[in-house]
Design a protein around this nucleic acid. Structure first.
Lengths: 254, 254
DNA sequence: TCTCTACTTTGATTCAGATCAACTGATAGA
DNA sequence: TCTATCAGTTGATCTGAATCAAAGTAGAGA
């Protein structure tokens, strides 16, 4: 009963109050008893394997999903049949926020690696939010954060060079890993060059070439999925709108 | 007392319940008495003139703003000092949603023409949302809609040609005017080629050339700010992800 | 009325990144 | 083990849109 499988299953089913992500996730800023009320509506199913669909575009909206471990990509299909990657989601990040609007998911989602998910029935989450003002506030913040992030991404896609996009992408991953307690400078990419390119509006060859160039310049060490950032400073210098610019705003009077 | 000025001032100060935008705006789906409670927290100041700032990036977050009449652009400053347009806002559309997140506005906003604004103190809106479940729901939908819209925009910027971007932009305006009771095929642009280009990630010359080309092809008639869409069908055919694709989803099983 | 200025159009040239193509290396399955 | 397949790298070429440049046009203000 205390064998490895059971332990790892327990780990997946860990309650919000005991979850290491709680400070990044919805429970952030909630009182412990409110966290327990939130926890009571969370469903935790068995993990997804790499390539498994979490949801499909067009599907009816029931739940929000939070990545607990692993990684998920969201994407849409273009007319020509190939996929357009819309986002990569790491532990503590929420999926499905775009579906509240009209009751249908606009994106499909697939696991990029073995992935555990917390499922939040939205109707119950709404009820709970009505009753817990700090949860409502947290929901508004969550949605707003997504809006900010996407606006930043639009600016990146609208005006930046390929170099800037790839640098920005790596910095974003680095920062997100760091906040999750992983190394900010040594990590594995769970997505392919193709998927990175699709996300950044670049050809996969361009992504590959830039990885090679950054390596030649001594900024990175890349070997397939394994990335080491050797010069975080210089990588940051390549980006005009620094990632999380809202945290380091220099001149608030604009 | 019944002279023109007073009448037009009254028009600006019209209550939510009497506002023609209520079906597009926050009151959408609220019971009449709840609309009145919402109305009670709305502040309506004197209109902005073209070029007036509604808010500046970095400013502390107090209010959400709804365009009542006119048009507003939101934008950020790039390192090089020139502006990056983030969005254009027509009557009934809400500004400032990105600021809930960390209490600071990430974008500046300026009136593109004479513009009336409804101001919503966010703390009071939050209180009200706690007490009116349908308002909370409407807020979630509003935020979600913004997320959907930005995701669509990211896809456009990530994969589309200049032709597709400009066509998509015109279709989006057309549809938004239509829903506000204006002509879908004959309207004035309140923004410059420069601003359109910045928004679409294109040079202003490219925007101008495409307007000319669409005109040569008989799809449009453009004279400076005045646009007439002669062949809405053909314009739509240029766009791979049709605007409002979520409303016309052909194959929900992805 | 006549500037002045800002916006727009149009043409010529350049260039970043896409596309096409070939090859390498890793992984999985027979 | 061998082989098929797929992800990634690298090189050559092409092209759509940026940039540079010049001229036309409308509207604001004197």
């Amino acid at each position: 009963m205390a064998n490895k499988n059971v332990i790892s299953l327990d780990k997946i089913k860990v309650a919000c109050r005991d979850c290491s992500l709680s400070s990044l996730c919805l429970p952030m800023g909630l009182r412990p008893d409110d966290v327990d009320r939130l926890d009571a509506i969370v469903k935790r199913n068995r993990p997804l394997q790499r390539g498994d669909h979490l949801l499909r575009a067009g599907e009816g909206f029931r739940n929000l999903y939070v990545v607990k471990t692993g990684a998920v990509k969201t994407f849409t299909q273009t007319n020509e049949g190939d996929e357009q990657v819309v986002g990569f989601h790491l532990p503590g990040e929420v999926l499905g926020l775009d579906a509240i609007q009209d009751g249908h998911h606009g994106c499909s989602a697939r696991a990029l690696e073995t992935t555990a998910i917390c499922e939040l029935p939205f109707d119950r989450l709404e009820d709970l939010s009505s009753n817990i003002p700090s949860l409502q506030h947290q929901m508004f913040r969550l949605l707003s954060k997504e809006i900010s992030h996407e606006a930043e991404m639009m600016a990146l896609l609208g005006r930046s060079s390929a170099e800037e996009r790839v640098a920005s992408f790596l910095l974003s991953l680095s920062e997100r890993f760091r906040r999750r307690g992983f190394s900010a400078t040594d990590f594995f990419l769970s997505m392919s060059r193709q998927e990175i390119g699709s996300y950044l509006g670049l050809a996969l060859e361009t992504v590959s070439r830039l990885f090679t160039r950054f390596q030649d310049e001594g900024v990175l060490k890349v070997e397939r999925k394994h990335v080491q950032i050797l010069d975080l400073e210089r990588l940051g210098g390549m980006v005009s709108h620094p990632v999380n610019s809202e945290r380091h705003r220099a001149n608030p009077t604009n």
